[in-house]
Design a binder for these strands. Sequence first.
DNA 1: TAACACTGTGTAATAATATAACATTAATAT
DNA 2: ATATTAATGTTATATTATTACACAGTGTTA
Lengths: 130, 130
Amino acid sequence: MHKEHTLTKNQQIIFDLIDKSSEPLKAYSILFNVQKKGIKAPLQVYRALDKLVEIGKIHKIESRNAFIACHNSSCQVAKATAFSICEICEKVTEISSAGLSKYLANFKDKDGMKYSKYNLEFFGLCKKCR
Amino acid sequence: MHKEHTLTKNQQIIFDLIDKSSEPLKAYSILFNVQKKGIKAPLQVYRALDKLVEIGKIHKIESRNAFIACHNSSCQVAKATAFSICEICEKVTEISSAGLSKYLANFKDKDGMKYSKYNLEFFGLCKKCR
DNA sequence: TAACACTGTGTAATAATATAACATTAATAT
DNA sequence: ATATTAATGTTATATTATTACACAGTGTTA
Ligand SMILES: [Zn+2]
Ligand SMILES: [Zn+2]
Ligand SMILES: [Zn+2]
Ligand SMILES: [Zn+2]
């Protein structure tokens, strides 16, 4: 469960937009869509995005420079994320697998180092596109 | 072992630069460094980078928008990559673990889907920065 | 109270990253 | 030879992200 954060006005507007989107949204597409709500500048968007990522309400899909809402209630560590990305339709799904997260959290590199933060992006074809 | 590709002039210049760098290089830093060799425009750099990524000679570190040479001779599938990234000094190391790549290649999502392409970035502190 | 720290906001300007469009040249295949 | 593909050179532009500065709200604390 996510720690409860009271979102500010800008954060709430931008989170709502991302949360109800069926696909990852890019920063300037978000900007375009919230201009009618008074958010006029890129920085206002990026500041809200930064905060939302920090508190785990959204995640950034690094390979796409886009953002999706976290729908994974067990995503306790906001910084340990895994996604599947369809290379045709660009559908992105957050992977919620206890086995995977356990494996990665326990993975040790050759220096014996463990990592609690990671981002994993799988690429392939989604059900519809196969 | 990588399939042998004969690099073109621009590709070779840019690969050499990345290969001898101790840290990931960004596209415009590459551009700056190869201008004396006649590569003048961003597009010339991006085209070479795209090709080098495609043939597995280099990898893109997505979270950093930077490129490193592949030093992993067992990196047969150029598109299945794992890295550790130091959050202080930004040192990046390609992880070469048979166990990890086997686990990820065999991972099935809840639809039973397997993925042969993935990119995994671990974040933490390197030996020196711990 | 007043001073302070902290967080968020608004705005303008600019930096950094990446691609489109078009003309040309080199390499490869039949 | 000719067709095809891949790479190049160049200009312009699109996309993504940050710097800098002024200010407002909130809570702490001296
Ligand atoms: Zn999540
Ligand atoms: Zn799809
Ligand atoms: Zn590699
Ligand atoms: Zn370090």
